[in-house]
Design a protein around this nucleic acid. Structure first.
Lengths: 240, 240
DNA sequence: AATGTTTGTTCCGTGACACGGAACAACGCG
DNA sequence: CGCGTTGTTCCGTGTCACGGAACAAACATT
């Protein structure tokens, strides 16, 4: 029953948008009466909401999701630095952590001009396709690198690095420079520069700035990203 | 079973912090073996995480919570204006919506100096105790006002407005000026100024700036808050 | 070290209730 | 009006959730 409920809720990943009963039934692979009954229970609990015949994720999930501890803590201490970075660049700023072979975004702030990006708060993307991901990968130890390189490399655009040898070289450059560059590997027309965040000797996160390719000027962005990442690392070292 | 699971998860509101099995058992009002079994299931599904003997909310909840539609949409379109407001004031900025007789915060951004506030993203507070709440209340119709006034008014500090007559007068002032002021009603030493956000004739949200009482200068903050709220209202009118 | 106390865990017989096929009802479409 | 689709109700069957009791493991106290 719990498992079936989870299947229903996970139908809303990643699109979130409202679904009808039959869609849920099909996507979850559960018979219609079952979905009907469970969805009604979920609505009663606030996990789902129902408008007419459309179901959507409920407010309770938002409340609970906002409380997930390590996500919350890191986001909270990182926020001031993300703000600094945003003010310095006025571009879209990301904060992400590693989860398995993916990067999960904890925060993403931007101005009035919103880039069309695959990144989403709470969403995950392959490590090798994003600036944040490459920064995390380059500083998370050789075992992880080999693990990633041992499998086929997913891609988000034709520019994504899918050649293991090229990725290995890219990671080495990142390790030397302390900065990860990414050009149209996550989204066409968008470039990105990222830096790792350390705490207690390990890489706990990375942050990045994503800009339209036309405006990409590493010389100006690099210092800002590095400064923010170092500042955050220093605070994390102090607090835990 | 779903209900019992919900009870367990709701133990993490509002503190979020890790709990041991017995604490969960007591807080949820469920027998220990039951919690043990359900918690194991929840861990398997990614809704809870377990480190040693401590349970915490899991990553899946964060992911699902980040997808809750209307929360997400409003947050996304409001973010640029919150950024503007933050840059203009460099103070803690809130975005909140009404839910029943409470205000629920959708976003809260701040700089390096973090105020000690009861507000929390995803958390709710009484309408009458906060700037955002009063702004929402003042522009949500007379029925709601009467509903709120018909019950005992909760308080967060000794300065919270608990006298119905005083609240009614305060709301009238807010309706005239279009701005809600709040002084130490939510947290001691913190003042706040808020403005409603409209879309399609109704009040859909409110945003605010919270500052240490010592630095509170309405003359400078008011235009910024008003500008941000109007800007957001305009965009919402355009997009839906 | 020996004791009591609390906490996490396993076991298992009982009974409630989740399950989903089948039948029904309410649309929307041509 | 008939037809496909969708949401909903019903209900007999069998499963699996339930939680008391018993056990084990970790601490606290003397």
């Amino acid at each position: 029953m719990l498992e079936k409920s989870a299947l229903i809720l996970e139908c809303f990943i990643p699109s979130g948008g409202p679904y009808r009963l039959s869609e849920l039934s099909e996507r979850a692979g559960l018979p219609k009466p079952t979905v009907h009954r469970l969805a009604a229970d979920l609505v009663r609990l606030g996990w789902l909401e129902r408008a007419g015949h459309l179901y959507r994720l409920g407010a309770k999930l938002f409340e609970l999701g906002s409380l997930v501890p390590h996500r919350l803590d890191l986001r909270e201490t990182a926020l001031p630095f993300l703000q600094d970075l945003f003010e310095a660049t006025r571009e879209t700023v990301h904060l992400g952590v590693r989860e398995g072979l993916d990067v999960v975004y904890l925060e993403r702030i931007h101005g009035h001009e919103a880039l069309r990006l695959p990144s989403r708060i709470g969403g995950s993307l392959p490590l090798n396709c994003t600036g944040v991901g490459k920064a995390l990968l380059a500083f998370s130890g050789a075992e992880l690198t080999e693990e990633v390189l041992s499998r086929p490399l997913p891609s988000l655009t034709p520019y994504s690095i899918t050649d293991p040898a090229r990725l290995r070289m890219a990671l080495e450059k990142i390790q030397v420079s302390g900065l990860a560059y990414e050009e149209q590997e996550a989204a066409l027309g968008v470039s990105c520069i990222a830096a790792p965040v350390f705490a207690g000797g390990t890489t706990v996160a990375a942050l990045s700035v994503a800009v339209p390719r036309s405006r990409f000027s590493p010389a100006q962005l690099a210092p800002a990203v590095r400064t923010a990442a170092l500042g955050l690392s220093r605070v994390l070292r102090r607090s835990g």
